[in-house]
């Protein structure tokens, strides 16, 4: 009987201690979790340990020049292709290649 009482008192003290520890938890924690779980998508797993690129384009004069040069090259290449594709009009009064 004595040991039974001792166990009961111990269990009560332990429960009281456990309750005191979690007493600071918001009573609406479960509701908060359910509301969050509804909104959460399944992209979470993919984001763990990953690098997400949100890069911006910095102003670099050298890169800009290189880009312009590349654009000019591409334009000339397209022009050559176009000239090869279309026959030259011999009787063009201005002597230019037609662009159209």
């Amino acid at each position: 009987m004595k040991s039974y009482l001792f166990t009961l008192v111990f269990a009560l003290v332990f429960c009281g201690f456990a309750m005191a520890q979690s007493s600071d938890q918001n009573p609406r924690a479960q509701q908060a979790y359910e509301a969050y779980a509804e909104k959460a998508d399944n992209s979470h797993a993919a984001s763990l340990g990953a690098t997400v690129d949100k890069t911006y384009e910095a102003h670099d004069p050298i890169l800009i020049k290189e880009q312009r040069r590349e654009d000019r090259r591409e334009f000339r290449r397209q022009l050559r292709l176009e000239r090869a594709r279309r026959p030259i009009i011999q009787n063009n009064p201005f002597g230019y290649y037609p662009y159209w």
Binding site: S47, G49, A50, T51, V52, K54, T55
Partner: peptide, 20 residues
């Protein structure tokens, strides 16, 4: 510890996994 996301907000592509 669990490793989460690393945001690359720089002007270059930088792979964070190299140092994580």
């Amino acid at each position: 510890v669990i490793v989460g996301m690393v945001e690359n907000k720089s002007h270059e592509h930088i792979e964070a996994e190299v140092f994580t």
